[in-house]
Write a protein that binds this DNA or RNA. Structure first.
Lengths: 252, 252
DNA sequence: TAATTGCCGACTGTTGACAACTGACAGTCA
DNA sequence: TGACTGTCAGTTGTCAACAGTCGGCAATTA
């Protein structure tokens, strides 16, 4: 949000091609930005599992830079919630306990609800078509049991609302929460109960969108939020309580 | 959220007094943490107005430390949204444009809505009494035109729900948004239209809470969100569009 | 005069070294 | 044997210096 890598306007020289950057731009990013990006990728992809200790000296050697940029990168990632820093104790890839996961999940859903109610008055036929297409994809993937593809389409489905909401801060915070929780796909699934239920709920939302009914669409979205809450009240523990949940993102 | 300043458990030595720290604890915080805290105070209090440039060398001299801790502190504050860092250009106290302010405002209200629906099933008589008391305070302050006192009670009112929600991540994000927007109290007021309306809405919420009706309470809260939206559609500009809004937190 | 080019000061980005702290281990004593 | 204390390696926190980049200003040229 803050450190905008100032998008420069088109340069006058060589303005022929318009799909790729004409002059392969020099990497103007600072070292710590590059480090941060690489570390983020590794964390999100699962190469760095939750709980992995991130030693400054080790990382510095690995990246071939001094400890300064490493510290900077770790600090930013800590602010994003991807790593956890304990003063004088070092950095660790953040582990979410079951409760923390549910907390994030609830907030994420609340943001989605807001996105829906903001987006609907702003959506045109193109966006509605996109929603329909994505919904159909999700149905297909669910029938074939393609969980990962399902979640991908699901994410795209929700992203339509986020983008259409026109609220940039919302988009940032949503993205951040998504990154934090995306590593625990399996548990997200456990919370949802079944793909079928998710699909049914989304179908209802699409209908409301087509009708331009912001209120019921938002209401439908809001009903999601109570799912993890109920799970908390009952004794069905999808993850052992207060136990770190570990990454299960293997095997496609 | 991440850097927990590990609350140490009670030491066995000198466990007589229980209200103040028995052994005046050594300041175990790192330098950059102290710098961050001081800068945050200054920004929130308005001593550092939005747009103020924060030079590393100047701050380093001012604090009597080297640039390292300053950089660290600025980086964290940037991640929190209180300062804006442009690579190789330096740090500036964040200025919110009108649109950015509205964006944050909407997200904040969404989080409050979530807080209400989560909190109500968890609230006991004590919390309800607290709500009633705070509501009465707000009525009094509004009648006397004590705007700042009103907002203080208002903040406490909302904080009851946030705390009672039991969702720590929600609490963190809410606090962060509050800090970002709190410096623009006057504009918050402009968005709201009048204190009276705010009070009426809160009264309705208190009633719903007393009835334990989570759904309508959340619905009442959610209705707030559309206020800034409508203002955006109409041509009433409480702040010039795309103009940085400046601090008006003087007086009292 | 207007636009371009080169220079310059000031600032940030990065580095390597030093200092302080932490947790663990081994040794000592009751 | 058990608890306490001192030491130690490894780590992070901090510092001061160097190098690179940015925007502004002045000199130059058409």
């Amino acid at each position: 949000m803050t450190e905008t890598s100032s998008q420069t306007e088109g340069s006058p020289v060589g303005a022929a091609l318009d799909d790729a950057p004409v002059e392969t731009r020099v990497d103007n990013r600072t070292l710590w930005e590059q480090v941060r990006e690489k570390l983020r990728e590794d964390i999100l992809s699962g190469s760095l599992a939750p709980g992995t200790v991130l030693s400054e000296v080790a990382l510095a050697e690995s990246f071939g830079v001094s400890r300064g940029p490493i510290r900077e990168a770790l600090g930013r990632l800590a602010a994003e919630g991807l790593v956890t820093i304990k003063p004088r104790r070092g950095a660790v890839v953040t582990e979410l306990t079951r409760d923390e996961f549910i907390d994030s999940y609830q907030v994420r859903e609340a943001l989605e609800t807001l996105a829906v109610s903001l987006a609907i008055p702003r959506m045109g036929p193109a966006e509605v078509d996109e929603l329909r297409a994505l919904h159909r994809q999700m149905v297909d993937h669910a029938e074939r049991g393609e969980v990962n593809a399902f979640f991908e389409a699901n994410a795209a489905f929700h992203d339509v609302f986020i983008k259409a909401s026109g609220n940039r801060r919302l988009a940032e915070m949503y993205k951040r929460l998504l990154e934090q929780t995306a590593r625990y796909l399996a548990h997200s699934l456990a919370l949802r109960g079944s793909l079928g239920k998710s699909i049914a709920e989304h179908a209802a939302i699409v209908e409301a969108v087509e009708a331009g009914d912001a209120d019921s669409a938002a209401r439908l979205m809001a009903d999601h939020i109570e799912v993890p809450q109920r799970l908390e009240e009952t004794d069905e523990h999808p993850v052992p309580p207060d136990q770190p949940v570990t990454n299960t993102n293997e095997g496609t």
